[in-house]
Design a protein around this nucleic acid. Structure first.
Length: 552
RNA sequence: UGGGGAGUAGCCAAGUGGUAAGGCAACGGACUUUGACUCCGUCAUUCGUAGGUUCGAUCCCUACCUCCCCAGCCA
């Protein structure tokens, strides 16, 4: 017996159903599918669905298809097909079969003809306005179309002529003949085919009629032998229609549809429409802007596939609408990068320090481990000399209580180096601190075992002569509020979602190339931006800051 | 107010007639050459509300409340 035992996956109602189906012998092999429409980019919400479908099938030795639901040529494009394939692969999944709804257009047409022959579908000449009027309302039943009783012969002829291109867009549709009085609006003679004279990205001009989702999707699933067709909650009341199509089209296999709640997260938006709006209105730089919750945005930001997969597993799968705290995603990327990223020093807001008792012209190369929690990552040498940069925040003239960093007359430890004491503060005409004069104590060298004195704080630094200029792009959530009204979300844009700083990193940073992740001490995890890559002047995207129990 | 769903901690989320898993967040404390990490501890006498059945209900029954979805020739 096949058993679900994914180590870190707790049970959810869909896994329970799959297990029961397996136990009861209703299915012998589980086949799931991820069915995006190639009309936009994938986001973290899709990642939830991708992980669910692929991992579920994988865990019971089943298969998963990547299927493009390309039934609407006016919105779709190959560009999206390629981007989607790349995103799914990047997330770490391999599909067992790559499918396109458009590959089944012939089969779908034959099934439509079958429905007509059985008297279960008819060609309707009503325009969309008229159709809406006859559909009734939530509380008022609809009325039959005047074309509802055309003969099978006439319908067959009309459908064929629709296919042949005899009629203009919108002139006729093929409708299922179900029940205009059904309390479920989806059953009030839903449209199965519409006329659209448009070039399809794959079938080109072979067709001028295209199947609607409700007709196409169950047929696609059945053709592929999909056993568990998982979609989101809004399709719940389409399920009776899904089952109707599978049954009356006499599909040899019986897929079943299950619905789960789509992902929502705090401080961001998750609909294609809103994401597109952010791009179109220039709020962000594009679909792969590191602030976007798109897969491409997260990738560019520096998120890892592992972190996204772990996140997807941990948030669970259920039927109640919910909003996941964005900090959960951050937790998983910190967790993933903790032992993988090189821990180095970077100064984002430089303040020059002159160590007045340090010999001029001398340079020391100090030992520094690359990751104190992962010895296998080895160590490197870092430069130390008379002039260094420290972080502006690490010095205050009038510090608040419990400030463990540098102040005039106090001592701190420089990570990997020595204790320094601030002796003098140099200011410019405006009274701003521009330089510090400090002294160091040679006896306190890091690794020497010095225990003579204790200091409260350890700060990081970069040697001036061996500092490499770098750009740091810091990000905050795109939206300030969590529950924006649909059309007002643009008013809640966080004006500080991006902050660009110019500072320094250690010279000769190991493995400096696009997407390399570093932990910059006391700041956070950063990833080398692939679009602006320049080894001499690297740009680092803040993936996620380190947690901190102290706020200035 | 027709139909379909959902209500378990600040946020996700298991569980299901036998007395509330886990994660995130938060808060204490220990440790610390990252105010990080790690460790230890705290965090639902209660499962939308009110009744009922039962020895016993978050789970079964009844009523009610709240929220979400559906009137595209989009998916």
């Amino acid at each position: 017996m096949v058993t679900l035992d994914h180590a870190s996956t707790t049970s959810n109602f869909i896994r329970n159903i799959v297990q029961e189906d397996l136990d009861a012998g209703r299915v012998t092999e589980v086949i799931t599918r991820f069915p995006p429409e190639p009309n936009g980019y994938l986001h973290i919400g899709h990642a939830k669905s991708i992980c669910l479908n692929f991992e579920l099938a994988h865990d019971v030795g089943g298969k998963t298809h990547l299927r493009f639901d390309d039934t609407n040529p006016v919105k779709e494009d190959v560009e999206y097909v390629q981007a989607i394939e790349g995103d799914v692969r990047w997330l770490g999944f391999s599909w067992d079969d790559l499918c396109f709804a458009s590959d089944y257009f012939d089969e779908m047409y034959r099934r439509a003809v079958l429905l007509v022959q059985k008297g279960l579908a008819y060609v309707c000449d009503l325009n969309s306005q008229e159709m809406r009027e006859l559909r009734g309302t939530l509380t008022v039943p609809g009325q039959d179309s005047p074309y509802r009783n055309r003969t099978v012969h006439e319908n067959l002829d009309l459908l064929e002529r629709m296919k042949q291109g005899e009629f203009p867009d919108g002139a006729k549709v093929l409708r299922a003949k179900i029940d205009m009085a059904s309390p479920n609006l989806n059953l009030r003679d839903p449209v199965l085919y519409r006329i659209t004279h448009a070039t399809h990205h794959r079938t080109k001009d072979a067709w001028c009629i295209y199947p609607m989702y409700d007709f196409a999707h169950p047929i696609e699933d059945a053709i592929e032998g999909v056993t568990h067709s998982i979609c989101t909650l809004e399709f719940e009341d389409h399920r009776p229609l899904y089952d109707w199509i599978v049954e009356h089209c006499e599909m040899p296999s019986r897929p079943h549809q299950y619905e789960f709640a789509r992902l929502n997260m705090t401080n961001t938006v998750m609909s294609k429409r809103k994401l597109k709006q952010l791009v179109d209105e220039g709020v962000v730089d594009g679909w792969d802007d590191p602030r976007m919750p798109t897969i491409s945005g997260l990738r560019r930001r520096g998120y890892t596939p592992e972190s996204i997969r772990n996140f997807a597993r941990e948030i669970g799968v259920a039927k109640s609408n919910s909003i996941v705290d964005g900090r959960m995603l951050e937790y998983f990327v910190r967790e993933d990068l903790k032992l993988k990223a090189l821990r180095t020093m970077a100064i984002l807001r430089p303040l020059k320090v002159v160590i007045t008792n340090y010999e001029e012209g001398k340079v020391e190369w100090l030992d520094a481990e690359n990751n104190a929690e992962n010895e296998a990552m080895g160590s490197r040498k870092i430069a130390f000399s008379r002039e260094i940069y420290i972080e502006q925040d690490d010095f205050m003239e009038n510090p608040p209580p419990k400030y463990f960093r540098l102040t005039q007359g106090t001592e701190v430890r420089l990570k990997h180096a020595y204790f320094i004491r601030c002796e003098e503060v140099i200011k410019n005409d405006m009274g701003e601190v521009v330089e510090l004069h400090c002294t160091y104590d040679p006896e306190t060298k890091s690794g020497s075992g010095f225990t003579g004195r204790k200091v409260k704080g350890t700060i990081h630094f970069v040697d001036v002569q061996h500092a490499q200029p770098a750009e740091f792009r810091l990000y905050e959530p795109l939206l300030l509020d969590e529950d924006q009204k649909d059309d007002e979300f643009l008013r809640h844009i966080n004006p500080r979602s991006l902050e660009v700083l110019r500072g320094y990193v250690e010279e000769g940073l190991q493995d400096l190339q696009p997407y390399t992740k570093y932990q910059f001490f006391r700041h956070g995890y950063f990833s080398v931006d692939p679009q602006r890559f320049d080894a001499l002047h690297p740009v680092f995207n803040l993936v996620v800051p380190l947690k901190s129990s102290y706020q200035l």
